[in-house]
């Protein structure tokens, strides 16, 4: 396959970036998208230039590091998969592919296609944890959890924190991510002790980070590689209302 790539190049957070065009040839349709970028970077390095920086780690769809906006879609046009699981057979010979970083004020570009997603870490630090002792494995089995809640919690826990929801939302809202992290714990008995404090603190941190506000459009749900549902956002609202009404905080 021969392709034209238009890639966002930006030296650092302070400088302005631009799309730079690269030609690449002899790409196998069996390569993954990231392997194609590896080939490109090899060529760039051999020319003595600066390779394209992009985030990746596991390359099997579980870590949430890869984060590319490909031809106007977060993680490319395929559904329920990350960029590392995107293969070149999804493209045609001669295609032009535009590759951009996630764009959000809360996710500033560090270099080229790499953005700083530590705002997500701060949201987790604010309350996305359980500080009660959960005991040894057999103790976990002693706690009764309704099957339905276990399923819903597990579904929410599938969120890998990639940020595609923010990237694809026209408001750069982080509500799908935050709702997944809150739902995962609110549905389990271990999450009850800190339930209200968690909802208040995580929403506050999310708001302060400069994410936009959800307008209930649903692009996030459609782009999420882990199929996190907007019913979680409704639960986030319920948790926040509940916490505002019942918590001891003045």
């Amino acid at each position: 396959m021969n392709l034209t790539l238009k890639i966002w190049r930006q030296a650092n957070a302070q400088t302005k970036g631009k799309l730079v065009t690269y030609q690449i040839s002899d790409i196998s349709p069996d390569m993954s998208f990231l392997e194609m970028l590896d080939v490109l970077n090899q060529q760039i390095i051999l020319k003595g230039e600066d390779p394209v920086a992009f985030d990746n780690d596991c390359r099997e769809g579980i870590c949430g590091m890869c984060s590319l906006y490909i031809n106007g879609r977060a993680h490319g046009a395929q559904s329920e998969a990350t960029v590392c699981l995107l293969h070149m057979r999804s493209f045609k010979d001669g295609d032009t592919i535009t590759i951009e970083p996630w764009r959000a004020k809360a996710f500033p570009v560090i270099k080229d296609l790499v953005v700083d997603r530590s705002a997500f870490d701060r949201i987790i630090q604010a309350g996305g944890f359980v500080s009660a002792k959960t005991g040894a494995p057999q103790d976990a089995n002693a706690l009764p959890v309704a099957k339905r809640n276990a399923d819903l919690s597990m579904d929410a826990a599938a969120c890998i924190g990639c940020g595609a929801c923010v990237a694809s939302c026209k408001n750069a809202s982080a509500m799908l991510f935050t709702s997944a992290k809150i739902s995962q714990l609110a549905l389990l008995p271990q999450g009850q002790a800190e339930r209200d404090r968690r909802a208040l603190a995580m929403v506050k941190t999310m708001d302060d980070a400069g994410f936009g506000n959800c307008t209930n459009e649903g692009e996030c749900e459609a782009e999420c590689p882990k199929a996190i549902k907007m019913t979680n956002i409704a639960r986030l609202f319920r948790e926040y209302y509940r916490a505002s009404i019942v918590s001891e905080e003045m």
Binding site: A104, K105, N171, A172, F211, G212, N213
Partner: peptide, 17 residues
């Protein structure tokens, strides 16, 4: 919401919603 995305995408396509 506008301020949350200061730099626009060069290419932005809806996922259908």
């Amino acid at each position: 919401n506008r301020a949350a995305r200061p730099e626009k995408y060069a290419m932005d396509v809806s996922a259908g919603k």
